[in-house]
Amino acid sequence: MPRLAFLLCLLLAACGRVDYDATPTGRFKGSLFVMWVGEGGSSGDGRFVYVPNPRDPLRLLRAEGSPRVIQPEMIYTDGGSIPRAGQLFRGFSPWGYAPAYMIHDWLFVARHCLTDGTPTAEERRVADMEFVESAEITAEAIKALIASGKVRENDIAPRVIAGAVAGPISYQRWTVQGECKTDRVSEADRAAAEAGIPGSAKSLRGMVRRTPDGRAVPVTPAEFVAAVTF
């Protein structure tokens, strides 16, 4: 699945150009959940899913541009894919700007599925978005987090991140083909995440899902990790 292709500008010779200071400040509304759905790959960090609150989904309200509202759908997430060495510095935690990273990663999922011709209705709303705008939106989302008081001001991290997501590695991920199917949350993980939503009817009564061959399989709710509300 797409990830934020973070390489610190000090380690990456060619960062893209996004004027972080000139980027307007967006505003977040709604809430999100992070769910753990399994061990993940060889890294051992686990497999996580971003889940919008169905009662009040996370939205980024943009100050300008089209569409004016970005509402990401359920996706796999690992926060921001920041190199281990970079995580030693303030502002470069993989989860430090998590809602902004969810916005960014969902835009890439949308681009891949638009490219492959299988977008959802929500993904079609960003069909005309250019690559550089996805990076500008990430900067706008980070500024929204700072304005909301969720994170502290930082003179370095937001500008470095804005440059990295506009760089050549990120662009390469934007233009790939054949990634939509891999990006999509599997039916099993989607069912587990929906069952793990706090207070949901599905989590209270239990649920089953149908396998491709028609068998009914009990769903074990995903482990609730965190919630963020604006």
Score class of each variant (00 low, 15 high):
6 F>S: 05
14 A>R: 10
15 C>V: 11
22 A>H: 06
25 T>A: 13
30 G>F: 09
34 V>G: 02
39 E>R: 14
41 G>E: 13
47 R>L: 15
51 V>Q: 07
56 D>M: 12
58 L>N: 04
59 R>N: 04
62 R>T: 04
62 R>I: 00
62 R>C: 02
69 V>R: 00
70 I>S: 00
71 Q>Y: 03
72 P>H: 14
79 G>M: 09
79 G>S: 09
80 G>P: 01
81 S>R: 12
102 M>I: 15
103 I>E: 01
106 W>F: 15
109 V>E: 07
110 A>N: 04
111 R>V: 05
122 E>M: 14
127 A>S: 14
133 E>M: 11
137 I>G: 02
140 E>T: 00
142 I>A: 04
146 I>R: 07
152 R>P: 05
156 I>F: 15
166 A>S: 13
166 A>T: 08
167 G>Y: 07
168 P>T: 12
169 I>K: 09
171 Y>W: 11
171 Y>H: 14
174 W>G: 03
178 G>D: 10
188 A>L: 13
195 A>P: 05
200 S>D: 11
201 A>H: 06
204 L>W: 11
205 R>D: 01
206 G>M: 11
208 V>K: 12
209 R>Q: 08
212 P>F: 08
217 V>H: 02
219 V>L: 02
221 P>W: 01
224 F>G: 04
226 A>R: 11
229 T>Q: 10
230 F>Y: 12
230 F>K: 08
